[in-house]
Amino acid sequence: MNALTINDLKKTYSNGVVALSGVSLAIPEGDFFALLGPNGAGKTTLIGITAGLVNKTSGTVSVFDYDIDRRPEKARTLLGLVGQEINFNPFENPIDIVVNQAGYYGIPRKVAIPRAERLLADLGLADKAREQSRTLSGGMKRRLMIARALVNEPRFLILDEPTAGVDVELRRGMWEYLSGLSARGLTVLLTTHYLEEAEQLAKHVAIINKGQIIVNGTMQDVLAMHDGDGAAENGFRGGRLEEVFLRLTAEK
């Protein structure tokens, strides 16, 4: 079964900007899938439509075969979203943020509180659980958003640039944690600008540019497109995925 199935998805914003022009994509259950693309390529729009935050223009989206239009409640029950922007109330404390999120999924407090405490401890936020979240550092806020997205025990986790602004050490820790979840069967869709990490973590990768998928395959297939003799850009050379990414997005 696919965790996510997208067919001919189109989105044109009210200002006329075409964000997605006929995207089709399938993410198998249990996959760690990287969706890469330059800024403004349509990644966040695709994720927003899947999570119910953006209205699509046309096309279909299903989460574990539940159509997001016909069975939105079923589809959302299976999803967890870590958005690109920090979007929690900074005057609430982490434990309340995570427990309230569980409440919106119909999980009672007696179940949600121990679960939230465990998640916050796993993500290194146990000692901050009852402090106002505005006092947290940038990396802690990102981890809090991961804890919030996991509290409903989703089968499909979407991470939209979850490590933006996080230092190297913390980022490594977060990837380790997410890899562990993936190994236990959680399907992960990741967008990131850190391509070397996508290269190490993802089994499948798709590159989106100007609202269209320009490459989609296993990581090995995409890395095989690397010819090894790409010219250095301004004196720098990236990893293999980075070279492929730059070549494909530049060509298109």
Binding site: G52, L53, E73, N87, N89, Y105
Partner: peptide, 18 residues
């Protein structure tokens, strides 16, 4: 406030709450 300042309305929008 929840839709404009912090966008915390997303917490409910992504959930199955009708």
């Amino acid at each position: 406030q929840s839709k404009f300042f912090m966008r915390s309305i997303d917490e409910i929008l992504v959930s199955p709450t009708p």
